[in-house]
Amino acid sequence: MESQSYQNHRKFYPPHHFIYLPLLILLEVFGIWKIFNDEPNKLIWILFSIVIFLLFYLAIMIRQHYALGLQNRLVRLEFKQRYFELFGQRSDEVESKLGFDQIAALRFAYDDEFKELLYKALHENISGNEIKKSIKNWRADHHRI
C-alpha cells in the first residue's frame, strides 16, 4: 500500500465517484439537451431531468451525511483518548477551544508532533490545513471513509 501523505490522504469509492455519479451527470446533460431538441416530448424530458437531478443530489447528500457524521464523532473520540493518554487528563476544555478541522488534522501527527501542533493550534490558532502541511512525519489513516 502506498505511503500516505498530505497529497494523497483523500479517499474515493470508485463505484460511487467514478461510475454512478458520472453516469447521473451524463444522463442529466442528455436530458437537458433533449429539452431543447425534442419539442414534442419537452415536458417528459423536463421531468426526466428533474428526477435525475434529485437522484444525483440524494446520492451525494445521504452518503456524505451519514458517513461524515459518524466519522466526525469517531475523530473527536480518538482525540479525547489520545489527549488523555499523552497528558493524563480530560480534554474537554482544550477540545472546546479547537475547531473540528484542527482536531481532525491533528490525527495525522505522531505523538511528538501532536503536542507541538496542539500548542500552535491553541495559541496561534492555525487552521486544520496548516496543521496538516506542518506535519513532518505523516501518520497514515487508511480506515477513514
Rank of each mutant, 00 (worst) to 15 (best):
K97L: 15
K97A: 11
K97E: 14
K97Y: 14
L98N: 02
L98R: 06
G99P: 05
G99D: 15
G99Q: 11
G99C: 07
G99I: 08
G99K: 15
G99V: 09
F100E: 07
F100M: 08
F100I: 00
F100K: 01
D101C: 01
D101E: 10
D101T: 06
D101W: 02
D101Q: 10
D101K: 04
D101H: 10
D101M: 00
Q102E: 10
Q102R: 08
Q102F: 06
I103W: 03
I103A: 08
I103V: 14
A104D: 11
A105E: 07
A105I: 03
A105G: 11
L106E: 09
L106W: 06
R107F: 03
F108C: 08
F108W: 04
F108D: 09
F108T: 02
A109E: 03
A109H: 02
Y110I: 08
D111R: 06
D111S: 15
D111F: 00
D112P: 05
E113P: 04
E113G: 00
E113N: 06
E113D: 09
F114L: 03
F114C: 05
F114M: 01
K115G: 14
K115Y: 08
K115W: 10
K115I: 11
K115L: 10
E116C: 08
L117T: 06
L117M: 07
L118Q: 04
L118C: 12
Y119P: 08
Y119T: 10
Y119D: 15
K120V: 04
K120D: 15
K120W: 13
K120M: 12
A121P: 07
A121L: 03
A121K: 03
A121F: 00
L122R: 03
L122A: 02
L122F: 02
L122P: 01
H123N: 15
H123P: 00
H123D: 13
H123E: 15
H123F: 12
E124W: 03
E124V: 01
N125G: 11
N125T: 11
